[in-house]
Each structure stands twice: as structure tokens, then as C-alpha cells.
């Protein structure tokens, strides 16, 4: 059990050893697992910008203009919301190469409460033309994505959580790319698209559904933008119904992206398991996950409903 946060920390160190143009900026992060591996080995390429996310993003743009690959890390709440203007103006519109890393996303800030939790970041970042949005679902994929993101010519938003989660099998590196996804379980009963921690809930749901005679196809949609459209559409053609699960507000996330894809290319019933347009509150991440209905149980329930309405 390990977090995507620490996976990214490892991946950034590996990438930093391969490329000397990667520069780490952070807004006074004390979370050792993400910052320490790189910063201890490359102190001359690490900048603690203080608690100034707006300045950090602008500085990252300046570094990018100077030929570097800036990797800017902060709480997703402050990185994406507080610095949205700077991200849009200085990185997204000019299409500069930069990696934005939002930590403590979703409900994973737990006891810190509603302001530190972040369920609107994907909506904000997806709305920016040219911005790629990636949400890894385990340590190995998060580690590998660090390298992918640093090699991408435009801006990338990477969403990380601090929940300790199991690794999902062996990583097939050929599947790991911006715009990619991976089918973790194959089936013709219902398509379950998920990202981040919800991939694990989707796998649990698939096990239960198979006992009920519904074979679920689980797709880890780690690339929310661009979406792995062909992978999803091929699955929808087989199953004729879909459930999307994400640790994000129901507005603006993976659910809307998949629903829009289905509506335009292959209309089938789509249901979303997500935060139902509410803010969070203090609690442990697992308590919050239960309270806001982000578990395998909701996925099983929604799957049974869309299955009964499936269109093939």
C-alpha cells in the first residue's frame, strides 16, 4: 500500500537523473515523499517558492521560456484555484512545457476540511485548451507518469492523492501515455470508467457484479484529457451501458467527459458515481469516501441500473 504522491516522487527522481533540464518548484511542501527524493539529489534544481502559488506558476513559466522543464507542486486546491489566471495566461494560452502537480486532491486532505480538499481541480484544468490532465491510480503508474509528463511538449496537470492504495498488477508501459487508458478487466455487461482511487473501487464492484452475472469491463482512464476515446467507445459497443467513478465533483470531471463522448458517438445510458455537487468536511479520507458515496457499493448499484437500460 503506497500513495500516488510517493510514486510521483520516485518517478521525478528517475526523470531528474535522465534529464538535467527538469526543475522542481514547490510552494513550501513538507510532504517528504513527493519533494525529498528529487530535492535531496538535485538541490540546485529545486526551488521552494514559499507559500506563493501565483508566483510559483509565473516563475515556472519563466523557467520554461528559459528552456527548462518546470515541475510545480502544491496542494491541488491552491495550485489550480488560486493560480488559475497565471496557469491560463502564462502556461496554457502560450502552450508552454510545464508540469503542474496537484497534491491532496479529492477528499484525501481528509481532516483538513473543505478548503484543503479539492473536487473542482479537474474541471478547472480540463476547461483550458491545450492542457493535458492525468490522474494516476497507483504508485507504479504515477511514477511512470512523471517521466511522460516531463517529456510532453505542452502543459500537463497531474492529480495526486495521499491515500495509501495497492498497486494494480504489473504496469504495461506501452499503455501509459497521454491520451491512453488501460482495460483492467474485460467484460460485455457494463463499462466502468474510473480514475484515481476509484479504479480500486471499480475493481471491487466488478468482482461483485460478476457474481450477479454482469461482467464488467473496467477501464482505468488515467488520461482525462485527452480521453482514451477509442478504448472507451469500443467497450461501449460491447456493453451498451456505462458507469463512471471519480473522486471529484460530478460537474466537470471524467463523468461529463465520458457522457459527452457517448452522447455524440454512441448514446448509451451513463451514470456517474462522484461527489454530488457538494463541498467536503473534516473526516478521515475513508470516512469521507463512505459519506459522499464514493465506494464500490454505489458503483454496483448504478451498474445494475444502467445494465437494465443497456442499448446494444
Amino acid at each position: 500500500m503506497r500513495s500516488t504522491l510517493s510514486g510521483f516522487g520516485e518517478g521525478l527522481l528517475i526523470t531528474g537523473r535522465e534529464r538535467n533540464d527538469v526543475v522542481l518548484l514547490h510552494a513550501d511542501m513538507v510532504d517528504a515523499e513527493v519533494i525529498a527524493p528529487f530535492s535531496l539529489e538535485f538541490p540546485e534544481r529545486t526551488i521552494n517558492c514559499g507559500v506563493s502559488e501565483q508566483d510559483m506558476v509565473i516563475t515556472a513559466a519563466g523557467l520554461s521560456l528559459g528552456g527548462k522543464i518546470p515541475v510545480a507542486v502544491s496542494y491541488s486546491a491552491f495550485l489550480t484555484a488560486r493560480s488559475f489566471d497565471q496557469i491560463r495566461t502564462c502556461l496554457a494560452i502560450p502552450g508552454l512545457q510545464a508540469v503542474l502537480v496537484g497534491t491532496h486532491s479529492g477528499l484525501s486532505a481528509g481532516e483538513e476540511g473543505a478548503t484543503q480538499q479539492m473536487n473542482q481541480d479537474v474541471a478547472l484544468m480540463r476547461s483550458l485548451p491545450g492542457m493535458s490532465v492525468m490522474v494516476p491510480s497507483d504508485y507504479p503508474s504515477s511514477s511512470f507518469m512523471a517521466g511522460i509528463a516531463c517529456g510532453h511538449p505542452g502543459p500537463v496537470y497531474l492529480r495526486l492523492g495521499r491515500d495509501e492504495i495497492p498497486d494494480i498488477g504489473i504496469l504495461d508501459e506501452s499503455e501509459m501515455r497521454i491520451g491512453g487508458g488501460r482495460a483492467l478487466a474485460e467484460g460485455d455487461g457494463v463499462t466502468i470508467c474510473a480514475c484515481g482511487i476509484m479504479v480500486h473501487e471499480a475493481m471491487k464492484a466488478a468482482a461483485i457484479l460478476s457474481q450477479q452475472g454482469i461482467n464488467a469491463e473496467v477501464i482505468d482512464c488515467f488520461s482525462l484529457k485527452p480521453l482514451p476515446s477509442q478504448l472507451i467507445l469500443a467497450s461501449l459497443r460491447r456493453t451498451g451501458c456505462c458507469v463512471v467513478a471519480e473522486e471529484h465533483n460530478i460537474i466537470g470531471g471524467l463523468g461529463e467527459a465520458v457522457a459527452a463522448l457517448s452522447a455524440s458517438e454512441n448514446p448509451v445510458p451513463v451514470r456517474c458515481v462522484a461527489v454530488s455537487d457538494r463541498y467536503g468536511q473534516s473526516g478521515t479520507p475513508s470516512e469521507l469516501q463512505e459519506y459522499y458515496g464514493l465506494t464500490f457499493r454505489e458503483i454496483v448499484g448504478e451498474s445494475a441500473q444502467v445494465w437494465s437500460m443497456r442499448r446494444r
Binding site: V23, I58, L63, G67, K68, T89, I93
Partner: peptide, 18 residues
């Protein structure tokens, strides 16, 4: 890049760091 104000010194800092 320009447009929204208040970003010049930060861009300059990044250019100097690189």
C-alpha cells in the same frame, strides 16, 4: 506571454533562474 497583469517580475525571475 502577456495579458493579465502583475506577472512580469515572476516571469523575469524564472528566466533568471534558468
Amino acid at each position: 506571454p502577456g495579458g493579465s497583469g502583475g506577472m512580469g517580475i515572476g516571469l523575469a525571475n524564472g528566466l533568471l533562474m534558468s
